[in-house]
Nucleic acid binder design. Structure first.
Lengths: 211, 211
DNA sequence: TAGATTGTTAATCGATTAACAATC
DNA sequence: TAGATTGTTAATCGATTAACAATC
């Protein structure tokens, strides 16, 4: 139960990371952890961890710490990972195909229903079980099916058009892998993965290190 | 010519974005831009843009603005994009193959020399011209060849081992796509792309929107 | 010269860290 | 009860924004 103040982006970015470590702890059979121990594990300060978690509620117990499994469930719920998301991916090239698979099989609850493509050689095929449809069918498909998230993996120059069609078609989230910062209407969530930007930052830090 | 104060991560994250927009402006034949106009384009405040750029030098001209092409070159140089980087990718699965291609062909100067894999069916093949080698050869390869950046695209449980081999082999940067936060020795730059974390943040914002 | 816009300092805002009272 | 550790307030730090003098 979130308090009604807006949570900062910085906090939200840390939650999936906390969750990953909690999952590992569960796998290792650890059932309680203090903010201090969790700090050593994650690299965030104990103070920040407590501060972050208390945005959402008091999940710990004084003198004891946090129950690993309970905290994992709480964070999962906060992130909305206790539901299912239907997704479509647009742009079934090399990277698109790989991402469709990755997303579908590595993340519980995120279901990639199909891939939309313009290349006639791919249309009609199945890629690891995920059907490839004609991009022309996208708008109709969205009319007939409820889709939560659209993944954009096209070229830069069609990205905005694709995003518009997805948003008009009723998706509530866009996961964008193109180099374009697409704009989405209010009420649609947007997450960009700019791979080249990431690589370019890496280049910077390499140079900085060697000075 | 960077001043000798450490530049904050927030600034470095914005530079590739500035550069992308400058590239677009160049393609559109625009040759000067003011911080105010650039603000409208990028969504960052004019003040922040000027502040950021002045960490590295005075690239503008009072009363005029910034020369688009010159600024693009400056930022490229700051990011270290005026050199070549030799890369190897470890883990040539679905996503690894796609990333090797993407990196090799979408980014000038980032050359993926080869892919290392354990799957015997892939070893010896070429994927879009990039040779797949036996993972067993990685250590020797790094002894004989100078490699700048290692891309890790294996499963989570071998990620740290791979990272260690790459770092001992002399790479100066790690681009990590696994869900593990690998640790690298001081002097090696690390950039993580946690795809699942990104997706999980998206899920959060979708929920937040619909409340 | 007048107008525009930078470079840079100062003010504000927000996020992180420290401290400690509450409490298990 | 004593010890440990949270939840939360206060202090600090850093990043963003505003303001304006410098200057093209």
């Amino acid at each position: 139960m979130p308090k009604n103040t807006q949570i900062s982006k910085a906090v939200i970015k840390r939650l999936p990371r906390y969750r990953r470590y909690l999952k590992e702890l569960m796998a290792d059979g650890v059932d309680k952890i203090s903010s201090k121990e969790f700090s050593q594990l994650t690299g965030y300060t104990a103070s920040q961890i407590r501060q972050d978690l208390n945005n959402f509620g008091g999940f710990g117990q004084q003198g004891y710490g946090y129950n690993v499994e309970a905290l994992f469930e709480e964070i999962s719920s906060i992130l909305g990972l206790d539901r299912e998301y239907k997704m479509v991916l647009v742009g079934g090239g090399n990277l698109g195909q790989a991402l469709a698979n990755y997303t579908h099989y590595s993340n519980m609850g995120f279901i990639v229903e199909c891939i939309f493509e313009v290349n006639p050689r791919l249309i009609g095929m199945r890629i690891n079980g995920i059907k490839v449809r004609d991009y022309e069918e996208l708008v109709d498909y969205l009319k007939e099916n409820s889709v939560d998230i659209g993944i954009i993996c096209t070229t830069k120059n069609t990205a905005q058009e694709v995003s518009d069609k997805l948003c008009e078609g009723g998706v509530r989230g866009i996961w964008n892998f193109t180099a374009l910062d697409v704009s989405v209407p209010k009420g649609v969530a947007l997450e960009n993965v700019h791979l080249s930007d990431s690589l370019h930052s890496l280049a910077y830090y390499m140079m900085e290190n060697s000075q």
